[in-house]
Simulated scan of single mutants.
Amino acid sequence: MTQYYAPPGGLPPQTQLMTQRAVFTPAYAFIPKGCFSDIVTSALPGWTRTRLWLIARPMSGFSETFSQYVMEVAPGGGSDAPDAEDGAEHWLFFTDGLATLTIDGQGHEMDAGGYAYIPAGRRWTLLAEGNTPARFHWLRKLYEPAPGVAKPDPILINERDVPLSLMPDTGGVWGTTRFADPDDLRHDAHVNIVTFQPGGTIPFEETHVMEHGLYVLQGKAVYKLNQDWVEVEAGDFMWLRAYCPQACYAAGPGPFRYLLYKDVNRHAKLRGPGAFGAAR
């Protein structure tokens, strides 16, 4: 059965040992689920009855291309003006509850497993409904247009309606739920779900230009981040900078699944913030 972990919030008891697994390095960051307490939640202008954990944001030595929020919107809450950032595109992945997502005046009912891609420049709102909070991941990125390439269209679907794309030569133990065609150059980033069955592995050190955000939705594994092997489980978050080596062993007994962000399909910038030689 598909499961989606969502942080319950609260505070640890005073009797709990302080020692946790959080790590922040120049190559990667690891934020375990134990860090998702009430004292680190945030609120947003324009949102009502809402709290969130802001787990990635562009800053020196950390995320360069995206931000990621773990959202909790109480029934009746939401926003008619969710984001004032001009040029931002959005991905929403729902893990619990019910909500109505309206894009350009068209309403869409979203529940657990629901996925929405909202292109830059589209008008959207969200209203939490039902008897429990709507919980979802919200990823944001400034869209990078490309010459001769049209802007992408909205995507609204549930992951149960998307076939799993199996990696070749893996015996069916490693697959990806792809919500956008990887050959569609209109998209400058992908947000997918990666699934490993018990015993599945990334059997080599992936080292590539794509920045990653990985939020573990289900299961547990041992994940290699740069030179370190880290035990990870549902509710943990990993950020990997470009070229940070990564590998994985899925531990079982059930599937290991994570929500994956990566930037794709654009030239490396030669001028501007973050570009080589920009400060010269």
Rank of each mutant, 00 (worst) to 15 (best):
F24K: 13
A27S: 12
Y28K: 04
Y28S: 15
F30I: 06
S37D: 05
T50C: 15
R51G: 15
W53C: 10
W53V: 13
L54C: 04
L54W: 05
I55G: 07
A56R: 03
A56N: 07
Q68C: 12
V70G: 07
G76E: 01
G78K: 00
G87I: 10
G97D: 03
I103R: 06
Q106M: 12
P119Q: 06
R122E: 09
L126T: 05
A128H: 01
E129Q: 14
N131W: 02
P133W: 00
A134N: 06
R135A: 05
K141L: 06
P147M: 13
G148C: 09
D153T: 06
L156C: 10
I157T: 15
L164V: 12
P168C: 14
V173D: 00
W174D: 00
T177W: 02
R178D: 09
A180F: 12
P182V: 05
R186I: 05
D188S: 14
H190Y: 08
F196L: 05
P198A: 04
G199N: 01
P203T: 09
E206G: 15
T207V: 14
H208Y: 04
V209L: 04
H212I: 09
Y215F: 13
N226V: 10
Q227S: 13
W229Y: 10
E231M: 10
E233K: 13
A250F: 00
R257G: 04
V264D: 11
A268T: 08
K269N: 11
K269Y: 08
L270Y: 06
R271G: 10
F276M: 13
A278C: 14
R280A: 12
